[in-house]
Design a protein around this nucleic acid. Sequence first.
DNA 1: CTCTTTTTGCAAATGATTTGCAAGAAGAAT
DNA 2: ATTCTTCTTGCAAATCATTTGCAAAAAGAG
Lengths: 147, 147
Amino acid sequence: MTEEHLQKAEQLLEQSRLRKTRPRLEILCVLLAADSPLTGEQIFDRITPASVDKATVYRTLLLLLRHDIVHHAYLRNRIRHFELAHHCKPDHCHPHFTCRDCGRTVCLYQAVVPAVQNLPAGYLVLHRQTRLEGICPNCRTEGFGDE
Amino acid sequence: MTEEHLQKAEQLLEQSRLRKTRPRLEILCVLLAADSPLTGEQIFDRITPASVDKATVYRTLLLLLRHDIVHHAYLRNRIRHFELAHHCKPDHCHPHFTCRDCGRTVCLYQAVVPAVQNLPAGYLVLHRQTRLEGICPNCRTEGFGDE
DNA sequence: CTCTTTTTGCAAATGATTTGCAAGAAGAAT
DNA sequence: ATTCTTCTTGCAAATCATTTGCAAAAAGAG
């Protein structure tokens, strides 16, 4: 929990006029330090041990979700993953790539998702989400070792 | 459970060399008759009452998933939705549209999803999934009534 | 510093999905 | 058709992520 993250966390709460409490700051700092979406459990584990209850973690994530400070996605299984909404445009999130080999998920911030073509008339799209599945660069090169 | 669906269901099981059992046929018929992805619970409810155990429904769906006869997606909440893989190409499913108003999800079979642009080098994409959220034509026109 | 309103911790509840296990079908072999 | 072996099912109980009730504790206003 660096000083820089802490300040950013406070700023995020201020912007939404939310009280600055210990659990909220802890959770935001964890998310600020993360480089991929995390589950509630993972967030709980990364918080200063036992300083925040798990129920509070989930409750807080729901709050942050309502204030659009974090976004969530179901990446692989039925477990929800959370990440800061930083890199998301109002109408769509960056795509998520999940590796079938190592199971890791990465956010592809720089990738561009073109609009869906040939949409039937009458649908108003407010939000888009793209999930990619495959083999990550890491796992692809690893195979070469023993062939 | 029409005769036509029953035949199609048997055919699907044959193709994967799976035993034709009562629960499997029932479940496939439900999915063949559905026009949108269904949850395990919904499938259970639509089956001839009490003829199949709920655990069997889930177990069977997992089996069909492994044989690529059905696909699944998390559409709104943590609940899994299942549908026949019929309309899916090997590398991607049709997009799903979920209405924020009525909550219904529809499959947009005719929509075209362009490939993601500017993907970082080294990623091998095997599967794509697109989720759209917004207002459906039905809910959009409904608003005009009382304004 | 007091007071009012939110939040939190703790424990227990939920609810979708899984799993263990013995009884019951499917399909192959006889 | 009957037997046999293997795969499936039903039932009940277990999981596990997530929620919820409630009284105690903290935040921020006055």
